[in-house]
Design a protein around this nucleic acid. Structure first.
Lengths: 190, 190
DNA sequence: CACGCGATGGGACTGAGTCTCATCGCGTAG
DNA sequence: CTACGCGATGAGACTCAGTCCCATCGCGTG
């Protein structure tokens, strides 16, 4: 048995992605995922808190990346500049090699309310980290919260474009464009 | 039996709120809620899609209220002015009589990740309605999405203050203040 | 070689959510 | 007055998510 084969977590993630694509999210059981990964059902829940989480790994890395980027910005940086730095930091994860994987994952997430719900929670956690970090840098409320939401929206928009097969630019480039477009749009609201 | 007593849905909501306060969300079963409401477990799930939903009724009313407020704004209104109208429309639901109830409800929601997650989904639905309505009024992207997020944040901030026992103002007043503060904060970002 | 530690297997258990069928109460056509 | 239909309910079986406990296994260490 694969009992002591390494990378149990990665095996589970891969198995889950495959099964979700083959049978759909609903028709895939946690036990089924574990079985394909060569593990028992109880081991699945040792690695992931619930069935949804198997698609949302590595969120903590994200949050730290973003918070560190804000904290490490030059002292004279404006909030918007710090957001730019945060988006650049996130781009490290969104390499071209991971685009195909991200696309497959997103297709599944988009097709299910439960998963979209979890995605919102993850994004909320990210913007929460952002606003905390901004407040730590002296940005007052409600500007910190506003800036964090702005970055969250830029992130969502950028991700959608990055996923798009018609696109061929890197995540950082797109994210910078989206952030800029949002800042520009700010002036058109009043 | 209360089999044919009216307001089954309201009875379930009331019973759920009580039991969540008495035993906590986790220790309360859907069957237990139904029992206190004088119904069977299967009837609980006829009225609510899942256990969480019993705390989030009437969201569709919200969404329609907001969308109609945007659609019915005067032709020369700016996006921000439309958002103000939308927040006013929502305030109709947040009357002083409902404050105590909203407080109890929110205390439960705040104490549980599952419920916070669902709350995010509801808020996302609301901002989705907002941006759709704005686009229908000719507001281009990404300004429509940005404005919707702005209103969502104003709503969250306003709700938090409205819930606060130290506050005695009406929801509409607070929401207007929050919206204004966010618009002002916009200028401090660059 | 004995021991401990961490990861796993396996199975029992609770509760969410689905589904089906029988039942009940009320309104209505005849 | 009766028969019928309709909508809401009760009841129970069923699947699966998620929890929990305990035995087992492999590896490193003294």
């Amino acid at each position: 048995m694969g009992r002591w084969e390494p990378n149990a977590r990665e095996r589970l993630e891969r198995a889950a992605l495959e099964l979700f694509e083959e049978r759909g999210y609903d028709s895939t059981t946690a036990a089924g995922i574990a079985e394909r990964a060569g593990l028992a059902k109880s081991s699945f829940f040792r690695h992931f808190a619930d069935k949804r989480e198997v698609l949302f790994g590595g969120q903590e890395v994200f949050n730290r990346l973003v918070a560190d980027a804000i904290t490490g910005s030059p002292p004279e940086a404006t909030p918007i500049e710090m957001l730019g730095a945060a988006l650049d930091a996130v781009a490290v994860v969104f390499t071209d090699e991971r685009r195909a994987l991200a696309r497959r994952r997103q297709a599944i997430v988009a097709g299910h309310d439960d998963l979209r719900e979890r995605e919102l929670l993850k994004l909320a956690a990210l913007t929460g980290c952002l606003s905390d970090a901004l407040r730590g840098r002296g940005v007052p409320d409600p500007a910190a919260g506003l800036a964090a939401e702005l970055a969250g929206l830029a992130f969502r928009n950028a991700f959608a474009r990055w996923i798009d097969p018609a696109n061929d630019q890197g995540f950082a480039t797109i994210a910078r464009q989206e952030l800029k477009a949002l800042v520009a749009a700010t002036a058109t609201l009043t």
